[in-house]
Design a protein around this nucleic acid. Sequence first.
DNA 1: CACCATAACTATGATAATCATAGTGACAAG
DNA 2: CTTGTCACTATGATTATCATAGTTATGGTG
Lengths: 176, 176
Amino acid sequence: MLAYDNVANMPIRSATDTFSCPIAISADMIGDRWTLLILRELFFGAHRFENLQRHTGAAPQMLTDRLRRLEKNDIIGRAAYQKGPVRYEYRLTEKGKDLFSILYAMRNWAERWCRDGDAPLAIAYVHRACGADVGLNTVCPACGDTLGYGDLKGTPNSEIQKERFAKQRRRIALSG
Amino acid sequence: MLAYDNVANMPIRSATDTFSCPIAISADMIGDRWTLLILRELFFGAHRFENLQRHTGAAPQMLTDRLRRLEKNDIIGRAAYQKGPVRYEYRLTEKGKDLFSILYAMRNWAERWCRDGDAPLAIAYVHRACGADVGLNTVCPACGDTLGYGDLKGTPNSEIQKERFAKQRRRIALSG
DNA sequence: CACCATAACTATGATAATCATAGTGACAAG
DNA sequence: CTTGTCACTATGATTATCATAGTTATGGTG
């Protein structure tokens, strides 16, 4: 990758000044735990406040704050899905959908480096277009297509899912 | 992508329980602004405490804390580069180098969606192996190779760099 | 009409993280 | 024997996040 000519003599940057660096810009917009978990849930099909809260574990003001920021940055849109008591849902914009590549890279990295031994993948993805298991690749190993939002169909590993629910039950039992 | 069967009835998760979700694991390890900026700097060739501080703008305890965490997660290693007064430097492990795909995806996304009009890219990357400009692709548009750590050579846009230095000087002038 | 349920939040007070700034320790050079 | 370098620690103020409870608007049930 790029190397600085003279690292020592580069000027000091302030934390808030992103200086047009694209990584700093991305980090400002989505570089925090809650935002990433919210985005994961939006990609997985949860669109309502309550469900986002449920699946991420975020406190309501945390969620409100992060949703507002995402909306301000045009990553998600907020729209009423019913009148009566007016209720809103959140959906990824095109700009938001394109964050898929980042989330997918995060998933691939963690599955590659943070799995115990030869445990199965948490979620196996199949390329919709050709039916091939994509494994941990960014490009379909069968047909060579690049993989973006909507190109994959995921099936969570059933053992891991069972574990999830078991843990969940245990915690509720202990705390209740 | 995957859709929940019944989003509403999924159990509540706690914030600290990652439930083997690879995105939650990645988010825990690198999902914060400072960590991402530090990683950027490590990829760009800054390895010493002072330079990381200088380029990220992080306060020293912030930097210390993040470096310790990254070390604990085996993303970076700490090694003495001189005796005399013993001084340490930080370098990416193999696990750390593989984070390139995430940082590169973040760069691509921001350059695609957060640039004013037809402004040039902040940094142009060339595929070392074949010499082609890779643009904003994850796969070399000329030879089709996937692009990983070390495969690219970056050249910062000189106008943007000039702007950086100008802004820097202004801020120093104002605050001093 | 009273009462409960649902969903998208807001309010509150305690705890934890982050901030800017200053200081420390180990040495080397002048 | 003072000054400079570099990798940190210490400190006290500010800000963010936490768990929990409450609010608002409505629809359905008895």
